[in-house]
Design a protein around this nucleic acid. Structure first.
Lengths: 206, 206
DNA sequence: TTACAATTCAAACGCCCGTTTGGTTCCTTC
DNA sequence: GAAGGAACCAAACGGGCGTTTGAATTGTAA
């Protein structure tokens, strides 16, 4: 992660992701962060201007790619004439799963994302909604087309529930403890499987 | 909330709930907290020993009652011979809904609870698991009895998903914005309805 | 009323925070 | 190899943090 062949900025972003996930945005100090990243204390303010802006950059680095992958997967699913509800769900959930399995810190970023929700920070919500809200809308359209029996309000409620469940499941917040015999990878893949099956049934309800 | 006829301890707990919800546990300082509660700075350490223990007490004050209500509702449901899966879900979700509608701070406590999930704090998780883990187990048994086709792992995954979605929905994290014409009360009741229907379908899947 | 415990209080403790500074080193470019 | 900008660094800044102290105040029971 913080090997010497990574640039200072990259090492800072990596350490920030790690510590934001573990201790929260307020709880992660620049001193611990720069020490983890093996850079000078002043490097954060030199390269990112402030701690607040560092938070933004941590999100941007991952969400640009995640959103692109989701939209591409959705497009690919919709181009197949025989696609199912589960396929659309997979287009939404699978990129998040892949990200969570990413060798270089992706798994911790999912927890950072969940923290962002919990922070309820208006500045951050606005940033996320403005930059990545259109992705949710695309998926809502896709679900809506396959679920004509649901009115718009019902549909949005259910997508909201799925997003919440996905966030919590991927961030490993629940009571389920991974057994020692099961790898992290398989554990998360199971979570995604269960979530897709559960969410598909929930969407089809009534 | 912090009227003079409340005791010092009660005023501290009320202010703590409010500030923990708004700023998180690390983000809420004892100076702002005691100032809000109109008590001396040293009062927290005098009455609660430490900030960490104050966090515990904020949870205990609400969760004792919530857990009791959930278990009582569950018992009542199970005593009826013709109860449904939705009834059990309602026994779990409805007390949380009532709490979130409580006039004196209950709605903010739900957000504190959601923060606790996101914090991923080992100390806090242990406290919650030790004190309130048995409630989840009771419900797991009830669900399991009605869903014999699910093995234990499947069952726990689904309960985990439901708990996550409930926390997320009640804490108002999602994209759904309450319309101005709809009261907070009705908005949350709708959320609970949708969640029950969604979760029941998810539990019955496969 | 007196004695004692419980509570409240202002002040201070040592510590860690995000940020800034001014100098040093590194790396281009000519 | 000299010039100059980019990057790095140790040190310090002011300020807020959780906690502790010891004295003042309030409440209570004899």
């Amino acid at each position: 992660m913080n090997s010497p062949h990574f640039s200072t900025k990259e090492r800072i972003l990596g350490a920030a992701e790690e510590l934001f996930a573990r201790n929260g945005f307020a709880g992660a100090s620049l001193r611990e962060l720069t020490s983890t990243a093996k850079v000078n204390l002043a490097a954060v303010n030199y390269h990112f201007g402030s701690k607040d802006n560092l938070v933004n950059e941590v999100f941007r680095r991952r969400l640009d790619e995640l959103s692109a992958q989701r939209l591409e997967a959705l497009q690919q699913v919709l181009s197949r004439p025989a696609h199912t509800l589960e396929d659309i769900l997979a287009a939404f959930i699978h990129p998040a799963l892949l990200l969570s399995l990413d060798k270089s810190g992706g798994s911790t970023f999912v927890r950072v994302l969940a923290r962002a929700y919990a922070e309820h920070n208006e500045r951050l919500r606005k940033f996320l909604s403005e930059n990545y809200g259109h992705v949710l809308k695309e998926f809502a359209n896709a679900f809506g087309a396959r679920l004509p029996h649901l009115d718009k309000e019902e549909l949005y409620w259910r997508i909201d529930i799925i997003a919440g469940a996905l966030t919590y499941a991927m961030a490993d917040f629940g009571v389920i403890k991974r057994r020692a015999s099961m790898s992290e990878k398989i554990h998360r893949e199971r979570a995604a499987e269960h979530l897709i099956r559960f969410a598909a049934a929930g969407l089809r309800a009534e």
